[in-house]
């Protein structure tokens, strides 16, 4: 991937290091706020949200070990079996770099058709300068406008609509919003 941009901030480095490890084992997407921030939105965040495909316990143990070997720590729970239970119960777990409270990576397993669709339509965005898989732009906007809806999320959606204007597909956004209403609301 050609890079337009060389300046990496703390969130970029944290995200890319973490995702490089996950990418060796399974499919994932970074969703929500960090997508907007990596696309230039000027706001802070303490955590990055990541959805990964559901994997077996054995595979998850490999991932957990690989993350640990690379100085990432699961804040709670601190063993792979319990962490796997959290994930299969549709809860999230959080990783930080060893000895750093922030930033955090919040991980969930894909839990329904919408998450599967997001994994299947994931994209890399040159403007971010990051070799990271993100949710599709239209999906990202639909979630922010239909499900999350806080002022911060609506501003993120506005930002994404301007920055990626040529990629916006209103029909697709409408369909995803319908799916969100059916599956999540």
């Amino acid at each position: 991937m050609d890079r337009l941009i060389d300046d990496r901030n703390i969130l970029d480095l944290f995200c890319e290091d973490f995702c490089n490890i996950i990418n060796k084992h399974c499919r994932y997407i970074v969703v929500s706020g960090f997508f907007a921030i990596a696309s230039g939105r000027t706001r802070g965040t303490e955590d990055i949200d990541l959805i990964m495909e559901k994997v077996s316990l054995d595979k998850f143990k490999e991932i957990f070990l690989d993350l640990t070997k690379n100085d990432f720590v699961c804040m709670h729970p601190n063993n792979p079996e319990e962490a796997y239970e959290y994930l299969t119960d549709k809860c999230s777990i959080r990783f930080t770099r060893k000895e750093k409270e922030l930033p955090e990576m919040e991980i969930k397993f894909a839990k329904d058709l919408l998450d599967e669709m997001q994994l299947n339509t994931r994209e890399k965005y040159e403007l971010t300068g990051l070799d990271v898989w993100f949710s599709n732009i239209n999906t990202g906007i639909a979630f922010k406008e239909e499900l999350l809806k806080s002022p911060k999320d609506l501003e993120d959606a506005k930002h994404l609509r301007v920055v990626y204007a040529e990629k916006i597909n209103e029909d697709e956004i409408k369909i995803i919003k319908q799916m969100i209403r059916k599956l999540r609301l």
């Binding site: 230039g40 939105r41 403007l127």
Partner: peptide, 12 residues
């Protein structure tokens, strides 16, 4: 927010 987004778009 919109002004900054336009800047990002036009100055990649």
């Amino acid at each position: 927010v919109e002004r900054w987004a336009l800047f990002v778009r036009e100055h990649p």
